[in-house]
Design a protein around this nucleic acid. Structure first.
Length: 591
RNA sequence: GGUUCGGUAGCUCAGCUGGAUAGAGCAACGGUUUUCUAAACCGUAGGUCAUAGGUUCGAAUCCUAUCCGGACUACCA
């Protein structure tokens, strides 16, 4: 029985002893005591008054007195306006720390014997990654780490959209205007080179539309009849017919893009266990349509197109297969979902995809459930908000994006500028300096994007640089580096058990934070929100800095006290490192 | 129009399985270093938690309505 269960049981017993009334256990809940009051655990007594037949204050007194007499851990209590605040014995908290210290696996919850798939990134291969993709990638990677810490077996999957009209646009523009440019000849990263021609296509397309409109066509007709879009469509047909020249060009340009993506993935520190390619999966799903028709989940119109009626669910009728038998987006997604499940047999599968696709995923998940797949209820769309600029939405076609590679480079640069200005690491070897700038720059960027609730849309102002002070990645990294500095200075191991018998307020506050870690992991995993961990570790770092500021450590003469404080340091560092690993952020030994 | 997600300090956000005087960071102002890293710490100022009702001993949190903003509402992916 842990301390919470004990306190709850004894609270119930207190009133039974008092007047024979039994408070239902679920009515008794514990919460953290607010920082301005004495104590660590608070019991709200309002729900008990109908059982105790006493005022909230008196009820608190009765329970508090009982707890102090009957629970060996309770040091003292106070009652304020119906809130019973309980302070536990110092020894209890010292033992809590010792247990955390002894647990090398702290922050890794017991294995749940359950497989979860996280699909994220899922880029198109016609352009480089931008800030929106960065949010997706960091969120997906971090979610995978989080679930893994929470005890799940996680499979990270990237479904690459490597085919379709958008790739043909880049291919066509490169053929027409590229003069044989290659990444080697231009020095451009492959994905940037291909993206350049995607923009180029759009420029020409817009011009042609304008010309046609001037010639008297409607805008819609102009968009459909512009020669360059017709050429792109023709190219897509050729691709589908597996025309050798088209396939060769497609393979060449995709290879450029993959090489580019690989670099960006590496600098972001994300990775995958399995890649799926839409060029392999885009024909899937038709068998599922057949099944659905047989089951009566779908219906067919006179033109042979296949639909599903979702009006009962408050949605609309939705097309799932065209009249000519070709797929739409959702057809292949149905097929791919089944394929992924067949490959891995996971119980849960999470799609990390922006909220612009909320409707699509709602429909997809509904259809799979209606089809009766037992794994369908384990599917979840982790929908995150778009990253917008002050000028509005980012559009690759129009080149109004914050490029991922540029942004990362800028972050590293400003980390360098800031570090040099502070001048604390002038004695570092050059390689270590470079490493540190990267750690700090990326730390700032990743923390900036991950600390916000995924659901919220994010406004990014490129003219305002991301902070390096306050509630930021570098602040937490700095706290970690401070600890390492102390440990280097003291340079000795500490015993398993500490001999101190009392603790001060800062020490207690720090232990309380450390003690919350695993619960925070559970909560974060349940809500699929790395932001919970980001905000938690910030609170921890703040508590540490306060402690560090007020309480000496390395220059202490009292070795027993020093042991205890070192233990606090070591475990704070442990939890910061683990939290940041969940966020995909590195921690520096010095900064 | 419908569906859906948001609206908390000048700005960026936390708090939302109902609990005490609504918290941080940035920006502003003031202070702390012969003592372990000042990317830190402490303080001042800043709020009708969009609005109006409701439920409750108690509402930023739950319910209803309204207003504002985003996304979606394609035989595109």
């Amino acid at each position: 029985m842990n301390i919470s269960e004990q306190l709850i049981a004894q609270t119930q017993q207190a009133i039974i002893d008092f007047n024979g009334q039994t408070i239902p256990l679920e009515a008794i809940s514990l919460q953290e005591t607010r920082k301005e009051f004495e104590g660590e655990i608070t019991i709200v007594t309002f729900p008990f008054i109908k059982f105790s037949q006493k005022s909230p204050e008196e009820t608190g007194q009765i329970i508090g007195t009982y707890l102090q007499e009957n629970c060996e851990f309770v040091k003292s209590f106070n009652v304020l306006k119906g809130f019973l605040n309980i302070a536990l014995q110092d020894q209890y908290w010292i033992d809590v720390l010792a247990n955390i210290h002894a647990n090398a696996n702290f922050g890794n919850l017991a294995p749940k014997q359950e497989k979860v798939m996280v699909e994220y990134s899922s880029p198109n291969t016609n352009k480089p990654l931008h800030l929106g993709h960065v949010r997706n990638n960091l969120l997906g990677y971090s979610l995978a780490e989080l679930l893994s810490s929470a005890g799940y077996e996680v499979i990270k999957v990237n479904l690459i959209n490597d085919r379709g009209i958008h790739i043909c646009k880049s291919m066509l523009a490169w053929m027409q205007f590229g003069n044989g440019e290659t990444p080697e000849s231009t020095g451009l990263k492959g994905d940037h080179l291909v993206g350049k021609y995607y923009v180029e296509f759009d420029k020409h397309y817009k011009l042609e539309i304008k010309t046609l409109i001037n010639a008297g066509l409607s805008e819609d007709d102009a968009k459909k009849q512009a020669p360059i879009i017709l050429q792109a469509q023709a190219m897509l047909l050729k691709w589908e017919e597996k025309d050798p020249a088209t396939i060769a060009l497609w393979e060449k340009m995709n290879a450029w893009v993959y090489a580019g993506f690989e670099k960006t993935y590496q600098s972001m520190g994300v990775n995958f266990d399995k890649y799926y390619y839409e060029s392999n999966t885009y024909l899937l799903g038709k068998d599922i349509i057949e099944q659905g028709l047989a089951k009566g989940v779908f219906y067919q119109k006179a033109d042979h197109s296949v639909w599903i009626d979702l009006t009962a669910e408050g949605l609309d009728h939705k097309l799932v297969l065209r009249g000519d038998g070709t797929s739409v987006y959702i057809t292949q997604d149905l097929g791919t979902a089944a394929l992924k499940h067949a490959d891995f047999g996971m119980k849960r599968s999470i799609y990390v995809v922006g909220n612009e696709q909320d409707y699509h995923f709602k429909v997809l998940l509904l259809i799979l459930q209606k089809l009766g797949f037992d794994w369908a209820k384990g599917l979840y769309h982790l929908s995150y908000g778009m990253v917008d600029l002050p000028s509005g939405k980012m559009k690759s076609r129009e080149g109004t994006v914050v490029d991922a590679d540029d942004l990362i480079a800028e972050m590293i640069q400003s980390a360098q500028a800031q570090t040099e200005a502070l001048g604390k690491i002038n004695d570092f070897p050059a390689a270590e300096k470079t490493q540190l700038y990267e750690t700090i720059g990326l730390g700032a960027l990743k923390y900036f994007l991950l600390k916000v609730d995924p659901k919220k849309r994010l406004l990014f102002d490129p003219s305002e640089s991301i902070d390096l002070q306050g509630n930021t990645g570098p602040f937490i990294q700095y706290s970690y580096a401070r600890i390492q500095s102390i440990l280097r200075k003291v340079n000795r191991s500490i015993p398993e058990k500490c001999k101190v018998t009392s603790i001060n307020k800062n020490e207690l506050a720090l232990i309380l934070e450390l003690n919350k870690f695993e619960e925070q992991i559970s909560m974060a995993a349940e809500s699929y929100s790395p932001a919970v961990i980001a905000n938690y570790v910030y609170e921890l770092a703040k508590a540490f800095n306060k402690f560090y500021h007020d309480d000496p450590i390395s220059q202490l003469a009292d070795t027993e006290l020093q042991d205890f404080r070192l233990m606090l340091c070591v475990n704070t560092a442990k939890v910061i490192r683990k939290s940041f690993a969940i966020l995909g952020i590195a921690v520096p030994e010095r900064m």
